[in-house]
Write a protein that binds this DNA or RNA. Sequence first.
RNA 1: CGGGGUGUAGCGUAGCCCGGUUAUCGCGCCACGUUUGGGACGUGGAGGCCGCAGGUUCGAAUCCUGCCACCCCGACCA
Length: 492
Amino acid sequence: MSKNLTSRAEDYSKWYNELVVKADLAENSAVRGCMVIKPYGYAIWEKMQAELDRMFKETGHQNAYFPLFVPKSLFEAEEKNAEGFAKECAVVTHYRLQNDPDNEGKLRVDPEAKLEEELIVRPTSEAIIWNTYRGWIQSYRDLPILINQWANVVRWEMRTRLFLRTAEFLWQEGHTAHATKAEALVEAEQMNNVYAEFAENFMAIPVIQGVKTESERFAGAVETYCIEALMQDGKALQAGTSHFLGQNFAKAFDVKFTNNEGKLDYVWATSWGVSTRLMGALIMTHSDDKGLVLPPNLAPSQVVIVPIYKNDEQFDAITEKAEGIIKDLKDLGVSCKFDKRTTHRPGAKFAQHELQGVPLRIAIGPKDIENNTIELARRDTLTKEIVQMGGLAHTIKDLLEVIQDELYNKALNYRDEHITKVDDFETFKKVLENKTGFISAHWDGTSESEQKIKELTKATIRCIPLDNELEEGVCVYSGEPSTQRVLFAKAY
RNA sequence: CGGGGUGUAGCGUAGCCCGGUUAUCGCGCCACGUUUGGGACGUGGAGGCCGCAGGUUCGAAUCCUGCCACCCCGACCA
């Protein structure tokens, strides 16, 4: 492990890449654009999964699993969806390899083994799922269908970055079917709320809920709800989306049902997802120049104990004390690891646990044995204090809650300070270049203005906030009348 | 896919222009000893088809050709 991380001020993107690798979260693999998620990174992802899965089930959803492959004829059925993803699809054309007669010891694709119909590796699963739902739905009594799947998908991206954009990524995708438009809309909004609640309460990442403009909308959706977060470098990151799909997929896959008036109608749909990209959001929201900073809710170990000793006798005394602390913490539902490795000295352990973002560190040495104390260090503030043993477990449990809240508030302050109201295009460009962050500005509602602004500034409309107040104004670019402000930013 | 760049040990590198014995240095790794309240020190050691293939040459990490991979900047994107 090399000593120092590149600082954020020096090169934010280099800092991010180094942090992901050095904190042992993930690394690049032999497959272009695909990452290996290492045990420590995967443990954090599992924490996210567990909480999201709980929330999905609490809102009435069940898990299921659909195939990795989508026959091309199904994939192309919903035209807009197909068109939107066509440029980044991996395609299976053959099903067999054979020894290469011209190249000893090598394999080649058997030209005789061409598939009748190509299979698309799913970039998203609407097609295969809606084709399946057709067989499940005849009557309004079969509705709603509320299903989620945990899966991997492939989008053949040109340029990839660990967690933020990989060719293969892990995610969950919910796909629901409803009898009425109103019910589907409620579902799409509900799941966006679930995502917002998860991001804020669990990941300590403040988000803005909104809807996408037409050009940023999911291919095939009527409305795309989203949660947008702001990273420390002032760039926005779309952290989750929930789509109201209208009857587009029902029509494309001919999914009709008889309603309670005996009339035939197409089914209404939603889909919603978050991915391993949330790992990127987590890193870029809280971490610092010493490494990862994990909110207690997401830390694989919330507390780590580092022993400091000169001989076996001291180590035994420390171990006894540590085991007592671990037991008390476990009773309160706090996870704690005892780092008793003899192969590393305390300083190296301190540095490693800081790099990996363990929220609280306890150091116990001979002095602490003597005084009935421990040294308690906070990862988020990098402060440490000597604490008496009495009531330690409760002190720690409370402190973890404080840390969780403070991380959220810190991120919220940063975010709120980086929403700038702007009314003219010159200021727009200046704020984007110098201050960065979200810009709240009037927009005339046309794709043309949106496109022009993107070309000129690289900023896109991240969302039209849901809680927007209506306000008369003129478009920051065209000067045409506008009824509300929207949020612009450069985005990941 | 366009424009630029880089490939030397696990990682970071020197050497390349101007070909010449055993390919440089640091980190990391291994062994032993001394250490342990913020990334220890000493001694010894292991590790290389110099991206791949071909060519020029008495001789190639170095020169030439082709290929591959990766990085940066664009276009695309959760």
